[in-house]
Amino acid sequence: MRPNFLVRWMMSLDKLSCKKATLLAAKRDYVQISTKERFQLWYHYRLCYVCKIWENQSRLLDKIIQERIMSSLKSERLTDKDKERIKTELKNIS
């Protein structure tokens, strides 16, 4: 007897490898993924704690990178010497 539609559908969901799951998680940050994909990802995380750790650390990584980049930019300035050099360069071409 063939499994009914619902069972076949449920079976089809568990097709994510860890590589695909982490890639799907990356995709989800930019586009809306389908309900099936969302369920697949949720299901994969239930089975695979390593990918769950990846997901958590990936979020933390987002936070660290963002803060690092924003804070470094706030304090960056050109030195007076750099500015003088640019002005000299401009005088030379005029």
Partner: peptide, 20 residues
């Protein structure tokens, strides 16, 4: 393309996380 974009971001994050 946008799919290239998230593949690149994904790989970079794999590498960064591993390095950390």
């Amino acid at each position: 393309t946008s799919s290239n974009y998230w593949v690149i971001v994904h790989r970079a994050k794999l590498q960064l996380r591993d390095c950390l």
